[in-house]
């Protein structure tokens, strides 16, 4: 039954470009998809380890910049007389670099997270994103500063004689993002259901208890931040090679906020939460736009919805729907335990 629903859902997602016929809406779907991947990565930190990182846009932006720079090539003076020249690399290599570099940044942030918690961790992550933005803005030689990195090549996969795909145009990019989203979902699902995932949730619920039963708190926190950062970095790289321009505003706090709204509204600590929240808050601006509502009003609606969600659905949409779904499942009289109970419930 569940498997059938999953297959139907996937088939629906794969069929969208075949019947949508409106390239602008497809463009909106692609951007939404990329932000859903970023929101899933944030959920790993916010939902499963309970660390509110408000610097997720930093990983997203670093991924975008690293992949763009590697695929465009660059020249930079690391010291006044030490010129480093990097020739343009294939885009897939750039994206791999993005994942590695953001993973390393995630490792550093994970170490910091162990030292400072709560409000202080939030402020450290915001500061981190802001510092990275200012570096991107001012290190003109490398990043072109406010002039933006332009003409970023699209992703192309070339295996001589076998494969030659360039992801140009909306349909190709839609499938690319969809495949990445499914991969990310799978990786996160595996991680949170593994021993490591259960350890993360345990230390979110009660860190002292988790430590006392021998869970290595630092190790799992760092693992979660590394994974989260790397996935956000991959999303950023996808974004850069789709819109083909990156400027320092990619680090703005508002992008992090968008991801946070998606996660919190959808339901933090559930696998489906960021997807549901992402679809709603990714498509909502277009819906409001088609009602000819000023962009400012859209954002006011955004802000008010965010407050309402915290007040009315503090756990998010997916957990609020769960009793209803479980009731249905009960009627289906399935013998084996359902596979998709969120890990946080499986623990309790």
């Amino acid at each position: 039954m569940r498997r059938l629903a999953t297959i139907a859902g996937l088939a629906f997602l794969f069929s969208i470009p075949l019947w949508l016929g409106n390239f602008y809406l497809l463009h909106v779907c692609i951007i939404t998809g990329i932000f859903i991947i970023a929101a899933m990565s944030l959920n790993l930190l916010l939902g499963y380890t309970g660390q509110l990182s408000l610097g997720q846009a930093a990983f997203f932006g670093i991924g975008a910049y690293v992949s763009s720079l590697a695929s465009l090539g660059f020249e930079v003076h690391l010291l006044p007389d030490w010129l480093v020249t990097v020739d343009p690399k294939p885009v897939w290599f750039g994206m791999a670099c993005a994942v590695v570099v953001t993973g390393l940044c995630g490792w550093a942030i994970g170490r910091i997270a162990f030292k400072v918690r709560g409000a202080y961790f939030v402020i450290v992550t915001i500061s981190f994103a802001e510092v990275v933005r200012l570096v991107a803005l001012n290190w003109d030689e490398l990043t072109q500063g406010p002039m933006a990195l332009n003409n970023i090549p699209p992703l192309s996969l070339v295996i001589p004689g076998l494969l030659d795909i360039t992801f140009i145009g909306k349909v190709a990019n839609y499938y690319l993002v969809l495949v990445f989203a499914i991969l990310s979902y799978g990786i996160i699902a595996r991680l949170v259901r593994s021993r490591a995932g259960r350890a993360m949730i345990a230390l979110k619920e009660n860190e002292a208890l988790a430590a006392s039963v021998g869970i290595d708190v630092t190790k799992y926190l760092v693992l979660a931040t590394v994974m989260s950062a790397a996935i956000a970095g991959a999303a950023g790289a996808l974004y850069a090679h789709y819109v083909r321009i990156v400027d320092p505003n990619v680090f703005l706090f508002i992008y992090t906020v968008t991801m946070v709204i998606m996660v919190v509204a959808g339901g933090k600590g559930t696998l489906a939460g960021p997807v549901v929240g992402g679809v709603i808050f990714g498509l909502l601006p277009e819906g409001l736009r088609s009602l000819a509502i000023a962009p400012e009003v859209q954002w006011i609606v955004y802000g008010i919805l965010m407050i309402l969600v915290v007040y009315l659905l503090p756990q998010g949409i997916v957990p609020a729907l769960r009793p209803f779904l479980q009731h249905r499942r009960h009627l289906d009289a399935q013998k084996q335990p359902p596979a998709d109970i969120p890990a946080s419930e499986a623990m309790s």
Partner: peptide, 9 residues
Amino acid sequence: LVMIGAWIA
């Protein structure tokens, strides 16, 4: 989160 929402609005 509530304060962020208020800030945006």
